[in-house]
Amino acid sequence: MIKTLGTEDTLENAGLTDEEQQLFSNARPRAYEPYPIKAVEDFANWARANSLWILAFGTGCGAIELRPLMTARFDANRFGVAGRPTPRQSSVFIIGGYASVKTLKRIIRSYEQMQGPKFVIALGICPINGGMYFDSYNTVNRFDQYIPVDLYITGCMPRPEVLVAGIMELQNKIKAGRCDGANRYVENFDWYKANQKKVIKNWDMPDYNW
């Protein structure tokens, strides 16, 4: 069902040309509401926790340890983890370390295109406070100003064992219903957008990439 939205609910999409404005949706994202019956929600969460599909987007150095993680030795498939090529099919976004400004734009785009429920894991020190690139002109220092993060896995770079531990921790969090990053994004949408636009100077995509 397509809801017609009043002007106060819509996004401006100021970065687009008039022609493009017709092509993209200007609706705001909506928060996820849990099922009214707790047992159903718990079951759904259990199912989500055991089919974590990772978006194949190596955004930084951390991506190199994802390959050993997915192959024979550490074999993350046994946790229900699989790699997916497109954001539409995946539910976990692993931020592999530092995010340069150019990549941040693509991260935002891919993240918004992912369908809920979606979770974000950030690897390494760089997304927390900039790590060893704290003074670099091209990498962001505090990643959760731009995208909400559900779980940090520390290390420079995190070993596959730590990644496995992190995935299990994420599963526990999901089962307990405490992974609300996507909802935080929707609730504080304007704050996140303002932060994003502060660093991305050539904003030429819709405000929310449906």
């Binding site: 150019k102 990549t103 091209n138």
Partner: peptide, 11 residues
Amino acid sequence: VGYLHRGFEKL
């Protein structure tokens, strides 16, 4: 290219 640019030479 440039998605991984960190400006090493400057750092």
